[in-house]
Nucleic acid binder design. Structure first.
Lengths: 333, 333
DNA sequence: AAAATTTGCTTAAACGTTTAACTTGATTAT
DNA sequence: ATAATCAAGTTAAACGTTTAAGCAAATTTT
């Protein structure tokens, strides 16, 4: 390239990087640009990265890329990253700590400039390792109490509290929460919000209004719990609140099999969006997370962190909204 | 690292890359391995790539990563790539030639070792550029007639032919095909298969049994076409065959609004899977593509291409299967 | 007119690996 | 005893950039 333009290798670099502070003559600039055009020249990013110690790569670790919640977020983050000149590398941990570690290592090996992470349970040590190596990162969706780091979260407790109040106000008395068996704080907060409303209204005798499902056997467990719940004739639920889209989809399938009419027999509220809701006969009421805000904030916070790793930690909480459909219409008595 | 082990930088390289052909003593191997362990040493891939001219990166360009068809394929390809030591970089063109070009450039700039591509219309020139630069690539899902390249496809014509015959055999007489307005061969083949069955059974008077939808206005166009079709009383369809999952989801939503009962009033067959079908009241009959085979074959073919770019071109055709639900049950008269 | 500064460009080191070529000492073959 | 071979390691060039430092010529300042 340099010889094609008939100038030094350094001049090429200065011109192509617009380093106008270093003084390059107009004709040299012309020569280089024309040669670059003609040769279809594209600088070698590998070499550039080796020298500059920056790759312009952001790594994203999601829990499950097949889940529309994460694939949507990934798209948003990709767009935001591109806007500021970064390439996004995506990995899916599938909630598996080993796979999670593998991804962390992969991103470190590829010298990502920073990471956006939805952490998995029991992965504190890997995040601590990142902190030791001064790899900038931002946690999204979840956080780990032992890790002091930048986070983007939503108001899980509050929105869950509000949803439960909303159902009560609509006349539902025997509300069940379908949750995960988990230690993940953001999910526990959803349960807490629910429970606190029950307590407040002295309905807390029913601690067993919370049904906890193991993430690896969603269909089986929901199906068998629902069979029991809706076949015994005392104390049937009149509303269920699913704390994730996967639980909701599985649960609704189960309810269809049981021939339960929504909302006549049972009100339903779900968490998160998925296209699947749209083919269900009754428009589903669901908690809509501010995905765009989450994605843009995550990139923004990470970018400031990459630029200056000594900045104080930010813990950003965004508000989710309740999107009201017909699945939770006021109860008719 | 080298000084930590007390050996030369070269010895470290030999040991860590298991270059046993070069003769390294047992104690040196020990020293290096222990030092690597202690320092938590991870070789710099950037430098490695600069020297070796290989990045161990495979790029994947899909048409729409939010579509479960492509996100599934992406997961499969990622797993396959990892198995053979490659990292997968994913990009989504959103059927936009400019974005497509941007991704091609990005992958070239990042020095991917090879690309797996679902090409967009009017992108021949970018693929030709790749061929000129000797960048190995494999086309999936689609192909461009002007481009001689390795491809993985399915038997689009045949499966569409079979689906149409199947509907006829089930007693449906007035079948409509919902297709895209497009020049993409694989989609045209689906239309051809459909039309050829109609012709064979002398039902071809109705060339307008094919409804072509512009990809950017799916909901509006389907909705208005269906409004017309099902409100006029002569020649109502008794079956529709959607040639993609997006068309199917949109179409089924429309049919729900129109209060049409499936399969009593209308049989439905879709192309490709999506979780959304599962929440629909009637289990949907759909064409199931062999996603795992597509993904593994794509990686396999690409890998042989990377290893030896002079090998002859392969055009692999895999078979799709019809997954029969209740949405296309034999017609009751 | 000499000194100082500015302009325009080049030189060369560095980034962290890989790998061919080399060295040195030990062993084996003649 | 000498030559040839082998084993175990080191040296140094190279990959394609960036960028500090250097240098000459032109311009400005004194």
């Amino acid at each position: 390239m340099a010889l094609k333009a008939g100038v030094s290798i350094a001049s090429v670099s200065y011109v192509l990087n617009n380093k106008i502070d270093s003084r390059i003559g107009k004709d040299t600039i012309e020569k280089v640009k024309r040669a670059a055009e003609e040769l279809n020249y594209r600088p070698n990013n590998i070499a550039k990265s080796l020298k500059t110690q920056r790759t312009n790569i952001i790594g994203l670790i999601v829990a499950d890329i097949a889940n529309p919640y994460f694939s949507q977020i990934a798209r948003i983050i990709e767009d935001e990253a591109n806007k500021i000149g970064y390439t996004l590398l995506i990995g899916s941990s599938d909630e598996n700590p080993e796979k999670f570690e593998g991804l962390i290592n992969m991103f470190c090996d590829r010298q990502a400039d920073g990471l956006i992470i939805a952490p998995v349970e029991n992965t504190e040590k890997y995040l601590q390792k990142l902190q030791k190596q001064k790899m900038p990162f931002v946690l999204i969706d979840r956080y780990l109490p032992k890790i002091e780091a930048d986070t983007i979260q939503i108001n899980n407790y509050e929105i869950s509290y509000n949803v439960t109040e909303y159902l009560l106000n609509n006349g539902y008395k025997n509300i069940y929460l379908i949750a995960y068996k988990t230690q993940l704080q953001h999910l526990l907060q959803r349960t807490d919000g629910f429970m606190d409303v029950l307590k407040k209204h002295q309905l807390s005798q029913n601690k067993n209004n919370v049904i906890s499902i193991h993430k690896d056997h969603i269909d089986q467990e929901i199906s068998s719990r629902f069979d029991l719940l809706f076949k015994e004739n005392n104390s049937k639920p009149d509303a269920v609140f699913f704390t994730s889209n996967k639980l909701a989809v599985s649960g609704i399938k189960s309810l269809m099999k049981l021939g339960i009419n929504i909302p006549k027999d049972l009100a339903v509220v779900a968490f998160d969006e998925t296209e699947a809701y749209e083919l269900f006969a009754t428009p589903i009421t669901f908690v809509k997370q501010p995905l765009i805000a989450i994605g843009t904030k995550a990139v923004e916070v990470l970018y400031t962190k990459i630029s200056n790793n000594t900045l104080p930690i930010q813990n950003i909480v965004l508000k989710a909204a309740l999107h009201i459909g017909q699945s939770s219409e006021p109860k008719l008595n």
